[in-house]
C-alpha cells in the first residue's frame, strides 16, 4: 500500500483501495468472530470449564451460529423510543470503530492511511463512540438504558483524559504524531528500545485507561448486569445489538494494535538476531498477547465500584499521566538536547 499514493489518484486506484479495504473489513470481522470464541475458551479454561465445544469441531462455529441467530432474530423497537436516534446509534458507534483502523501500520510497507496526525486522528474518532452510547441510552427511553448510557459516558470521558495524556510522552520521544514515525523511533534492535520501558509510567496508565475505555472488566460498570440489566443497549435486539457488540470488539482490535505500535515497537524484533523473522509476525505476536491480556484480566479481576472508578481516573491516573509528561520533557531537556 501507499507507493502509488504519491501520484494523483485515479478512479481505478480508488477502486483498488476500496477492494483492499473490503478485504480488511472481512479480516476484522473474522478477528471479532474468533476473538469472541477465544475469549470464551480462555475464560472457560481459567475457570476450569471447557468453554464452547458443541457447534462445529471444537466449538469453532459457535460465534458464527450466534451471529446468524442475531441476524434472523426479530428486531423490536420500543413504542416510546425515538426511532431515528435509536436506529442511528449502533451505526454511529460502529463507524468510528472501524474508521480508526485506517491509520494502524502493520509493517513498514503494510498500512492503509499514513496520516501525519495519526494519533490525534485515533483519539478524536474514538471519542465519537461515546456519543453513540449516550444517544443509544437516551433514544431507548428506558431508565436502565439512560442510566447505563450516562454512566458509560462519564466513565469513558473520565478515562479518555489520562489515555490521551499518557501518550504525550511517546510523542515527545518520537517528535511526531505519525504512527509509522513512532514505530521507527523505537528501532534499535533490542526490546529495551521500545517505548514501554522508557515510558513505563505512561504505559501503565495507558493500559489501565484503555481497558476502561473498552468498558471491559474490571471497568465494565456500564454493562453491570446485576444492577443495570445490560446498560445502554438493554432495548436493542437482533443485529442492532450486534453492532454495539461488534464495535466493542473492533475497539479491542484497535487498542491492541495501538498499544503494539506505541509501546511495544510495532513490527520490530525483540533482539537483533531475530531480525530474519518477518515484521508482520512480530506485530501479530505482540498484538495477540495484548488481546490475550485483555481476556486474562477479565477472568482475574472483580468489577470495581463506581466511586472507586471515578476516584482512580481523576485522582490517580490524571496526575500521574501529567507527571509523566513533565518527567519525559525534563529528561529530554537535561540529557538529550
Amino acid at each position: 500500500m501507499g507507493a502509488w499514493l504519491h501520484d494523483p489518484l485515479t478512479w481505478s486506484d480508488a477502486v483498488i483501495i476500496f477492494l483492499w479495504g473490503a478485504v480488511f473489513l472481512f479480516v476484522v470481522l473474522g478477528f471479532v468472530t474468533y476473538a469472541i470464541y477465544f475469549e470464551r475458551k480462555v475464560i472457560g479454561w481459567m475457570q476450569l470449564r471447557i468453554g464452547p465445544n458443541r457447534v462445529g469441531p471444537l466449538g469453532l462455529l459457535q460465534t458464527v451460529a450466534d451471529i446468524f441467530k442475531l441476524l434472523i432474530k426479530e428486531d423490536t423497537i420500543p413504542r416510546k423510543a425515538d426511532r431515528l436516534l435509536f436506529v442511528l446509534a449502533p451505526i454511529l458507534c460502529y463507524v468510528p470503530a472501524f474508521t480508526v483502523l485506517a491509520v494502524i501500520p502493520y509493517t513498514e510497507k503494510l498500512y492503509f492511511a499514513d496520516l501525519n496526525v495519526g494519533l490525534l486522528y485515533y483519539a478524536a474518532l474514538s471519542g465519537i463512540s461515546t456519543l453513540a452510547i449516550v444517544l443509544g441510552g437516551w433514544a431507548s427511553n428506558n431508565k436502565y438504558a439512560l442510566l447505563g448510557g450516562m454512566r458509560s459516558a462519564a466513565q469513558m470521558i473520565s478515562y479518555e483524559v489520562p489515555l490521551v495524556i499518557s501518550v504525550v510522552g511517546v510523542i515527545l520521544l518520537s517528535g511526531s504524531l505519525n504512527l509509522r514515525d513512532i514505530v521507527d523511533a523505537q528501532a534499535g534492535g533490542w526490546f529495551w528500545d521500545w517505548n514501554f520501558l522508557p515510558q513505563i509510567i505512561g504505559f501503565v496508565v495507558f493500559i489501565i485507561a484503555a481497558v476502561s475505555e473498552l468498558n471491559r472488566t474490571p471497568f465494565d460498570l456500564p454493562e453491570a448486569e446485576s444492577e443495570l440489566v445490560a446498560g445502554y443497549h438493554v432495548e436493542y435486539s437482533g443485529f442492532r445489538f450486534a453492532f454495539f457488540m461488534l464495535s466493542e470488539y473492533v475497539y479491542v482490535y484497535a487498542i491492541a494494535a495501538l498499544t503494539t505500535v506505541l509501546f511495544l515497537g510495532g513490527w520490530h524484533a525483540p533482539a537483533p538476531f531475530l531480525d530474519f523473522v518477518p515484521g508482520i509476525v512480530w506485530f501479530l505476536l505482540k498484538f495477540a498477547f495484548i488481546v490475550f491480556f485483555l481476556f486474562w484480566i477479565r477472568a482475574t479481576f472483580p468489577r470495581i465500584r463506581v466511586d472507586q472508578l471515578m476516584g482512580l481516573g481523576w485522582k490517580v491516573l490524571l496526575p500521574v499521566s501529567l507527571l509523566n509528561v513533565f518527567l519525559t520533557a525534563g529528561y529530554l531537556e537535561l540529557f538529550v538536547k
Partner: peptide
C-alpha cells in the same frame, strides 16, 4: 483512504 474507510464503515 480515510474516506473510503468511512464509506465501508
Amino acid at each position: 483512504v480515510v474516506a473510503i474507510f468511512i464509506l465501508l464503515g
